[in-house]
Amino acid sequence: MPNWQNRRNRVVETLSIVATVLAILALLASLRLSLPPTADRFFARQPLTLLTSAAWLVPYIVVMGLAVGLMIKGQLSPWPQEAMADFAGRWGKWAGIAALLVVGTVDLWMVWTGAMAARRFAPVGSEAAFGRLQLLNVVFGAIFFLLVALFAA
């Protein structure tokens, strides 16, 4: 294998490992937001507080728009295991794992986490009314995946 190709593969692998670590942290932060606020007691100790901090969602928010756009263009599967196989085949094992985690996190937000985040920050008195948002989030997510399937087909 030529030297430049070895160097390119090393760069891709390094970037993929960094992306995987960031994706794990974004998934952990998303899982925390997906639970009711009462579960926060469990996360109120180090290192769980740090590992599930909302700060890890900042790079993820930037990637989310790209991932959703790629899904609609049919260039990224909404099924995590398919996305993993595709990316691993093209860019190696670590890229596949990063794709698995990113797609899994996008799916989670599309069907569930958005409503839970809205409930968490609901103004006093609106919490009960906002309970219905979860059902609507599931419906919205289902419509989104239906559209992805239609566009991809």
Partner: peptide, 14 residues
């Protein structure tokens, strides 16, 4: 633009 536009539009709609 196409990819981000589509993704951004879905998130904005959301």
């Amino acid at each position: 633009f196409t990819i981000y536009g589509l993704g951004g539009a879905v998130l904005l709609f959301f």
